[in-house]
Nucleic acid binder design. Structure first.
Length: 280
DNA sequence: CAAAGCTCCTGACCGC
DNA sequence: TGCGGTCAGGAGCTTT
């Protein structure tokens, strides 16, 4: 479930504890997540400095000294729990599914917990990141300049798939997941089932600012949850945000002149929520 | 090549 | 109370 805004929020949340810090130790409590952890993962991280923490798509990137990067994905149930040094118990108590624990030289903890283990953590040389299998085919960031109407229209023209599938395709644009795509299409008044190649250029162009706005607002909402965590231990991962259609099957559409209800269908195996009257 | 289907995993939920 | 079945979903992989 963590989509771009949630990952961005996690990034901002862990920066105060980890960025610029040396890793006192890294504890790994199992040797695989969705894919195996790198050989001697925790040993290789001990003593290294996290120079910078960034995000690309739904991936968190910990840039280490020695031109190496920890690539981290939250999957759908992954979260990071923060524990300030002063709040630690002795001995530390870890929860079920706490898989990887980062301890900084100030002895603050960042705990990666992921029940379903759809997440992953791996290592990559800094200069090889763009060629990494996970990154090689990635599309542009939705909030960046390379993502614009012309670009998306060209991608849409080439596909007979539903527009929803196109927006979920990380090769087209990164960061969007099932929830935000439903919201974007609702706000754009476009049916998720509409074949991408049948969309007019104006319709495709219309989606760009909507995508940007929905993501930006969600990031802001995430930011305000961070403030609540500022003084206490907190869990960073999926946060509930107000959604207009997602998870609202059977509820009123809510558009002033519309008295229809939100429907739920399945598109490429994913739950899809939309208003049949407002979206076509 | 595109597109559809399968797969990993656990917790929540449902009906009996 | 417990048990089996179903569902959720990111994204790489396999099949069509």
């Amino acid at each position: 479930m963590p989509e771009l805004p949630e990952v961005e929020t996690v990034k901002r949340g862990i920066i105060p504890l980890l960025e610029g810090r040396r890793l006192f130790q890294v504890i790994q409590r199992r040797d695989n997540l969705r894919i195996p952890l790198p050989d001697k993962f925790s040993e290789r991280l001990r003593g290294r400095t996290i120079k910078r923490i960034t995000r690309r798509a739904k991936y968190l990137l910990l840039h280490l000294d020695g031109q190496e990067i920890v690539i981290c994905h939250l999957g759908m149930s992954g979260k990071m729990t923060l524990k300030a040094a002063k709040d630690r118990e002795s001995p530390d108590k870890f929860e079920k599914h706490d898989h990887v624990i980062f301890e900084s030289d100030r002895h603050d903890l960042v705990i990666f917990n992921d029940p379903r283990r759809f997440g992953l953590m791996t290592l990559c040389k800094e200069d090889a990141l763009e060629q990494h299998p996970l990154f090689r085919h990635m599309g542009p960031e939705p909030l960046g300049n390379e993502f614009h109407g012309e670009y998306l229209f060209e991608k849409a023209q080439k596909s007979r798939s539903p527009i929803k599938t196109i927006l979920l395709d990380q090769r087209v644009v990164v960061g969007l997941g099932n929830i935000y795509v439903c919201e974007v299409l609702f706000q754009a008044g476009i049916s998720p089932e509409k074949k991408a190649c049948l969309l007019k250029k104006e319709e495709v162009e219309k989606m760009i600012p909507i995508i940007r706005e929905i993501l930006t607002r969600a990031i802001e909402a995430g930011g305000s949850t961070l403030k609540d965590y500022a003084r206490i231990d907190g869990e960073l991962g999926y946060f509930q945000h107000e959604f207009k259609v997602y998870g609202r099957e059977g509820e009123a559409c809510g558009t002033p002149s519309c008295d229809d209800k939100i429907k739920r269908i399945t598109i490429s195996g994913r739950s899809t929520f939309y208003c049949p009257s407002c979206q076509d």
